[in-house]
């Protein structure tokens, strides 16, 4: 006689599958929603913690700490600046994994509008890294206006980089992960692109331009493109940029000031706001490079909160009189 069972094996498995997948879906949702809460809502920057650590940016003897290079061709002045800093071999060793972080903020305008980094400067750096023996050179940013693909294309950087032998990478959401910021003053962890932290060499290639809340967007500010939830950094922008910089610490910063945007930044759109300064600033010290770039706008490093904070945290020096600067002209 066949007994009537309450639940057959097949039905049980089916039930298990449905409930299980429900839980799995639920877990997906939670994983996705676990965004960081705003940390304490501080109004102005806290007094930065005194850092006694010596600069790790010190240049080998005989080599200038900061190089300023003027000239007609963006690629050529970049090349000379790197050579004066000791050549790309100083930064890139054979087989290294290199990431270059230009500023490709939107897909609104081509590079002549000085809202995005000059493609020739980026391409020159890609070529030099490959010549120095880099295994792979990836170039990436996360634009806030338009898609990454279209911004890469519009800026002219995609074409130039691919021609130079580098790879454009569209940042993958899954590769941002919560990373501790040991030296952080206001924020102690943030969502950072893991490849940027893992790369052997990170080269930061900002364009110098006007920016209302930050004052100017330069090297430290450019690093915001490597983290998620950027809008939330604005709650205490100048300290949080410095905190992010203390974690990411690019090995080399090349400020593209061939064209600078003097008003209506960071997006731009008027050629009248663009000033041809035909300069590239390079240093292993991101703070020093930013400090010098301020002078192009008639400002000093002390006018810009995040440079003050970064210098105070010992990330680099903003004192341009204390370092060896070499100025190259064509």
């Amino acid at each position: 006689m066949k007994t009537q069972r309450l639940l057959s094996r097949r039905d049980f498995l089916r039930w298990l599958g449905v409930v299980g997948s429900g839980f799995a879906l639920d877990a997906c949702g939670k994983a996705n929603l676990s965004a960081p809460r705003l940390t304490k809502f501080t109004q102005t920057s806290l007094p930065p913690a005194a850092q006694d650590t010596p600069f790790s940016n010190a240049a080998p003897s005989g080599i200038p700490y900061l190089v300023i290079s003027h000239g007609e061709s963006p690629a050529e002045i970049t090349c000379r600046a790197i050579k004066a800093l000791g050549g790309m071999e100083r930064f890139v060793k054979n087989g290294n994994e290199v990431i270059i972080k230009p500023n490709i903020c939107t897909d609104y305008h081509p590079y002549e509008y000085a809202a995005t980094t000059n493609p020739e400067v980026v391409a020159e750096l890609v070529e030099e890294c490959l010549a120095a023996g880099a295994r792979r050179v990836r170039v990436m940013d996360s634009p806030f206006g338009g898609t990454a693909q279209s911004a890469y294309r519009k800026s002219g950087i995609a074409e130039a980089v691919e021609k130079a032998g580098g790879q454009m990478e569209v940042m993958v959401g899954a590769k941002f992960a919560k990373s501790p910021i040991p030296q952080g003053v206001d924020i102690h962890e943030w969502w950072v692109y893991q490849d940027v932290l893992a790369a052997d060499v990170l080269i930061n290639v900002p364009i110098a331009k006007h920016h209302d809340s930050a004052g100017l967007t330069l090297g430290c500010k450019n690093l915001m493109g490597t983290v998620q939830l950027r809008d939330r950094l604005h709650a205490n922008l100048h300290q949080r940029i410095a905190d992010i910089t203390s974690l990411i610490r690019p090995d080399l910063t090349v400020v593209d000031a061939y064209r600078i945007l003097t008003r209506h930044g960071p997006t731009g759109g008027n050629l009248e706001d663009v000033k041809l300064t035909k300069t590239v600033i390079a240093s292993a010290d991101i703070v020093a490079a930013d400090a010098y770039a301020c002078t192009l706008f008639g400002k000093s490093a002390d006018d810009i909160g995040y440079i003050r904070n970064a210098a105070g945290m010992g990330i680099g020096t903003k004192d341009l009189t204390a370092i060896k600067i070499e100025e190259l002209t064509a």
Binding site: Q43, Y108, H211, D212, S213, H234, H264, T267, G268
Partner: peptide, 26 residues
Amino acid sequence: CLPWAYNTECAVCEEMCPVPDKAIVF
């Protein structure tokens, strides 16, 4: 709005504005 209501620095909207002359001013 952070600057208006809470006296906190914020200019995100102005920065994002794609209009060349900026449709948001201060």
